[in-house]
């Protein structure tokens, strides 16, 4: 069976380490990699009227920026790695959305870095790695 690995990727050093680990595994097992980037978003946050009006425009800009500045370069870099690579770009709660991507793609594994772009809130409310370890639908590998 072909091995499919979802990598949570945010451009941090730790995410790069996770990605190269995943590429290594995929190459060894003849599998493929899904590079998933999640834009943090809650439908229950509060916006001002101006933000409301501009939301659709901002969303398009954010998606475009994530694609051109983050995902496209990394895919280009991996073009000669010999591993089949595709991307997923989503809005939502990071850990939950990574789980969804894994389910939708029928992946057998999730790989993430231990510390992404960590913020104060992740220190207070638990990190993505912690949540995934608890809630992941498939085996989760956390790369230091």
């Amino acid at each position: 069976m072909s091995h499919k690995i979802v990598v949570g990727y945010d451009g941090s050093e730790s995410a790069d380490a996770a990605l190269s680990f995943a590429i290594g595994v995929a190459r060894a097992q003849g599998g493929s990699v899904v590079i998933a980037h999640v834009l943090e978003w809650s439908p229950y946050s509060f916006l001002t009227p101006t933000e409301l009006e501009e939301r659709h425009m901002r969303r398009s800009e954010e998606l475009e920026r994530a694609k051109s500045a983050l995902l496209d370069p990394v895919v280009a870099k991996l073009s000669d790695s010999g591993v089949e690579v595709k991307t997923a770009l989503k809005y939502g709660h990071i850990a939950e959305t990574l789980c969804e991507v894994a389910k939708d793609e029928g992946a057998d594994q999730i790989v993430i870095g231990r510390t992404g772009h960590s913020s104060l809130s992740s220190r207070l409310f638990g990190s993505v790695a912690g949540s995934l370890a608890q809630a992941g639908p498939v085996p989760v590998t956390i790369v230091p």
């Binding site: 834009l39 978003w41 439908p43 229950y44 946050s45 509060f46 916006l47 001002t48 009227p49 409301l52 939301r55 659709h56 969303r59 954010e62 998606l63 989503k90 809005y91 939502g92 969804e100």
Partner: peptide
């Protein structure tokens, strides 16, 4: 779920309510 990142019903209601 594919519309995540757009203005949700909750957000429109919350903004209107705060007015």
């Amino acid at each position: 779920p594919n519309d995540a990142g757009e203005v949700s019903h909750f957000q429109a209601l919350a903004t209107a309510l705060s007015g």
